[in-house]
Nucleic acid binder design. Sequence first.
DNA 1: CGGCAGCTTGATTCAGATCAACGAGAGTGG
DNA 2: CCACTCTCGTTGATCTGAATCAAGCTGCCG
Lengths: 269, 269
Amino acid sequence: MRQHGGGVGAGLRTFDGSVVRPIPTRFARRIAALRALSPEERHALGTAFAPATVVPPGTDLMVEGDSLTYGYIVEEGWACGYRLLNDGRRQILNFVLPGDCIGVSAAVIRTADHSACTLTPCRVIPFSAPRLAELQRGCPQLGEAFAWSTRLELAMLQERLVNLGRRTARERVAHLILELLHRLRLVGLADGTAFELPLTQGALGDALGLSIVHVNRTLRRLNNEGVIRYRPGVVAAIDLPALARIAEFDEDYLHQAGSPPPTNGAATG
Amino acid sequence: MRQHGGGVGAGLRTFDGSVVRPIPTRFARRIAALRALSPEERHALGTAFAPATVVPPGTDLMVEGDSLTYGYIVEEGWACGYRLLNDGRRQILNFVLPGDCIGVSAAVIRTADHSACTLTPCRVIPFSAPRLAELQRGCPQLGEAFAWSTRLELAMLQERLVNLGRRTARERVAHLILELLHRLRLVGLADGTAFELPLTQGALGDALGLSIVHVNRTLRRLNNEGVIRYRPGVVAAIDLPALARIAEFDEDYLHQAGSPPPTNGAATG
DNA sequence: CGGCAGCTTGATTCAGATCAACGAGAGTGG
DNA sequence: CCACTCTCGTTGATCTGAATCAAGCTGCCG
């Protein structure tokens, strides 16, 4: 881990494979929502995790090119995946919200194809990538759950590609706000239409392919139009239908494109 | 299937599950390169395919929102995945080259989250999505191969996101040319630095998030600079190092980020 | 032959970048 | 306690990469 800003480096403990830990809650809920796991499977899954740690903002959890031996579940806080160009231009690829993972791909590929860093203080749970890969091999349910979640990631990336390729700044901003609102709702971090947005305008710009200045003006404009209420740190989607219209937002892609695939059971607590 | 341009609609035959067909060659080679399959697995895989068909350019093989019951392997010709906005703006998400698939996600999700259409006449091999999903369940090797190829797709999408978000027109065009060159090489459709590019400038624009006019001018500029030689239908990467420098192109992401994951064997013919 | 799709080029416009400056708050050190 | 610095947000002025508008060209197909 490497830190960008100031802050104390919180050294992560390594795994102790012999210890079985309970499956992290948010993450468990997500997996369970996809596939019912047997008690043995849950137990096996538990062996892949290390104890949770808190890391300060601006910490790189994964660096492009590094070999991938472990990943993280983010239980609390925001992080993001990004790529850097030689001259410093940055593209944020995805925002990692509580319950999301960093480095799941480690189960499949050997080297990180992008970096990831925390944007706020984060409580993360490191997991062993080889262990997880092994588990997937032994437990088809788990493998399917991961295939599913990878597919979801793909759907989000596609949506973002459309955003950057063919939408105006105003549309992009509206779309991002709706994406975040819906994703936060799914994990119970937004109830109404307002939510905490712990992102600098610089980060927003790097996600949306816009300059800081233009992000600022676009937010202001949406503010003035009365469709959102933005203050640094907080947004509210005042006029949800208007926002959805502007962004042509269809939340289906976040709900995993229809019903879950055929399986044997429902979610477990 | 729905066609955009003129042309004769080639009705696809439906599957006859009882017939075992040989695994399509390009596709087989790709899968084999990832995982060694046993004879039984190859046999099982063969039952998922329908006979090859040729479809004219401009044919929709998949439409956003449609339920996904089958997908296609493209054995010959170019196709693309795309999304359309209400006002007609189009974003091409990916180019589908010989050996690539359309609708693999059908094994995981129920409804297409994007459309796909042929750009040239294509020889395609329809496959049954449920059948393939079933096979994956029974054959972990196959499941892993697909997980792997999904990951590859994800890596390409990420690269494109960086392209659209943070690169200039010139850089984008250079990058696309290199991506296509390398991908075509991998399937033996480009040897030196030149290759057939059966894409209209409109299609290029829709992939790169640029207008037709600007694509034209950018190609011309790269031409004049002597880094490429472009004629409608054909490109040559004259100055490969210069192109790579312009695009900050790193071919690793296409070679599947390092060595293949641990497995039991090498490729089979 | 006409019509169409794609390519090309010039002229003009505009969305968004860049440059520049300032203010507010947070942390740091004396 | 204050001065200093840093990051972030905000706003104005200016510039520019790329879009749009417009027109003519080519080759192909019916």
